[in-house]
Amino acid sequence: MGRWASVPPASAGPFQNLGMKTKDPGGDAGFSQDTGVKSPWDSIFKWFTFLMAMSVIALIFLVGYELFKSSRLSISKFGWRFLVSSDWDPVAEQFGALPFIFGTLVSSLIALIIAVPLSIGTALYLTELAPVWVRAPLAFLVQLLSAVPSVILGLWGIFVMVPWLRENLFPWLRSAFGFSPLFQGPIYGVSILAGGIIIAIMILPIITSVSREIIRSVPGLQREAAYALGATRWEVTRIAVLSYAKKGLFGAVILGLGRALGETMAVTMVIGNRPEIAKSLFAPGYTLASVVANEFAEATTEIYLHALFEIGLVLLGVTVLVNALAQLLLRAFGGSGVKA
């Protein structure tokens, strides 16, 4: 009878064939330990990877330093006022970044509000609900969206989307939600809302494909546990899939946000490029990235050029800050999620 003890455990059932990866939480514990055997390759490998990791960090600091160096005139002239002033008058040589910071943050926020439900919904459909034969082609099509060049999307935005928004969506929004200051005022078409919509389209593929990978990595056993309790498909998705994946999904959203903050070309073409802070989403706006791209060629005076470099520095700062905030948020509220 003794030989029965050595029989390996049988398969976990037919669910193993669904291509879901099961992660063994304790499986990698032994690898980081010193095995006592010294190989020169181990330390070469270690230092090599360390160097790679450091060079990425060094690159960020180098970019920051260069931006800082090239904007020193503007920094010394305006100081912190640069961040809170709304003046942008190249003729009078008065520069303030506030309208651009505002435009960048608001258009990115709009993009997230539109793109996150769409992306996670798409990812859930692609992994949990769609018939197997449509999954790969559909995922490919979503990927294809990210291959559309920014400038093409911008052209489509100017000639198709913006007129449609002006004639249809915006008037409807104004009549339905006109009680809110967000949806009041004249409609030009080009607007901060149009910019947000374009950014949403651009960050949809990245959030969708990262979310899809994260949802796919939820162990099949988690789903089975919920099914075995008599959960419906939606309940399985909610208690076994989404709650398991929420931390990773949050990461996917942050990745999308990083993209959104830096989007340049297409946004520049539809946002209206007017440096003002308006309550209405129908009003034109301007982003940090757009102003740099738009005005670089015409920056004839040295202070103007330095102000644009400082805008670049601010964009870097905003991106880093938002990402850091997101990490803090994740630690504070997403702590119960499972690392993806």
Binding site: P9, A10, A12, G13, P219, L221, Q222, E224, A225, A226, A228, I239, A240, S243, Y244, K246, S336, G337, V338
Partner: peptide, 9 residues
């Protein structure tokens, strides 16, 4: 199931 599968969250 063969492998315990409590909901980790």
């Amino acid at each position: 199931f063969q492998k315990s599968n409590p909901f980790p969250t």
